[in-house]
């Protein structure tokens, strides 16, 4: 949940005690209480910087020097949410008084964003960095270049939860439900068809964002084709199967339409030819809905004994539930998926 700070810092050293910029500040020491547990033996640099921060915060000081102080501390502890929050307030305060982009300060929103990205690359698992970026981009009301920034991060870790959270916010905030976004997910899936984060994002931009509304014509067909192609490449990939099921559900298409497709990966009478446990899983559901409990049981039995034995108890539970769901009335018209 929290990242450890790296000990190799390349930040320029700030000399709070001798620099006249800080002469008016009386540092406030930390109160760790009497005989505290799990005390941290900070470096002298961290102790001093934090004692200046406490004094600055107590005085509600949002002058430009706060930028140096907060970046100094963040360089030593990137998970320091109080410091991030105070830095953002300071940036906003300078922005309001139109001094942020002043030459004397030598800082700008662009520089801030570049600096944030450099920290992000150093500390990949961090909540604060991406929230800070979100606050800034929201304020600037301009998403230019932001997709590229997340792209850089996906090159390091294409499943980074914090970065995906930010990307989703970006897409929602600026309504970027466009071809570029679709192509971005396609390209990530091209690289790694098992990237579940990319599948999740694709579901979000194509179907999830619709809420209760139904998808446009052709979308369900296009997405189920995409999933089926992915399955053909790697039949044991759970992401693609889950996606296929979710697309059909959203499109109001019955699972039974998948029967031939699933059977091609999991012929239950020829267990040696079974290429996908996920196909077996879906087939057991399809057979059950059709009232064919013998075949449904066979599929579950194969899963428990051979194809997914660690989940034996779950498959047994599924057997217990067989026949408990109302079967769809045979006169209900069903929409046929284009297989």
């Amino acid at each position: 949940m929290a990242s450890y700070s790296s000990e190799e810092e390349e930040e320029e050293e700030l000399d709070y005690t001798n620099d006249p910029v800080w002469a008016d500040v009386t540092p406030l020491p930390q109160d760790d209480g009497h005989n505290p547990l799990a005390q941290i033996a900070y470096s002298p640099e961290y102790t001093i910087a934090m004692s200046y921060l406490r004094a600055i915060m107590a005085a509600n000081d949002h002058s430009p020097r706060v930028l140096n102080l907060t970046s100094d501390i963040i360089g030593m502890n990137a998970a320091h949410y109080t410091v991030w929050g105070y830095r953002f307030k300071t940036l906003m305060s300078l922005d309001r008084s139109q001094t942020l982009e002043d030459e004397k300060i030598g800082w700008s929103w662009r520089q801030e964003l570049e600096w944030v990205q450099s920290i992000a690359k150093r500390y990949e698992k961090n909540y604060q960095i991406w929230h800070h970026r979100q606050l800034i981009i929201d304020h600037l009301d301009d998403p230019t270049g932001e997709r590229a920034v997340t792209g850089e991060m996906f090159a390091l870790d294409s499943k980074n939860y914090h970065v995906w959270t930010y990307r989703q916010w970006l897409v929602q905030r600026f309504q970027l439900f466009d071809e570029e976004e679709l192509a971005a997910t396609a390209s990530l899936l091209e690289e790694d068809v098992r990237n579940n984060s990319a599948w999740n994002h694709r579901y979000f931009i194509v179907l999830g964002r619709l809420g209760e509304a139904g998808p446009e014509e052709g979308v369900v067909e296009r997405e189920s084709e995409l999933a089926k192609e992915a399955i053909s490449k790697a039949p044991q990939n759970p992401s693609a199967w889950n996606y296929l099921k979710a697309v059909l559900r959203k499109g109001g298409i019955e699972l039974a339409t998948l029967k031939p497709f699933c059977e091609s990966f999991a012929p239950i009478l020829s267990p040696d030819e079974i290429k996908s446990s996920h196909a077996l899983d879906i087939l057991s559901e399809i057979y059950d809905e059709a009232g064919d409990s013998v075949k449904a049981e066979k599929a579950l039995e194969l899963l428990a004994s051979k194809f997914d034995p660690v989940r034996k108890n779950y498959w047994r539970y599924r057997r217990r539930l067989l026949g408990s769901k109302p079967t769809p009335a045979s006169d209900t018209p069903t929409i046929q998926a284009t297989a």
């Binding site: 949940m1 929290a2 990242s3 450890y4 700070s5 000990e7 547990l37 799990a38 005390q39 941290i40 033996a41 900070y42 470096s43 961290y46 030593m76 502890n77 990137a78 998970a79 320091h80 949410y81 109080t82």
Partner: peptide, 25 residues
Amino acid sequence: EPLEDGLSRGFTGLDASRPWLLYWC
């Protein structure tokens, strides 16, 4: 050990998570 003897400066990244350290240990 961390409770009684404290933590080295390598744990500065957890300085904003002090209650977590107590709870976990």
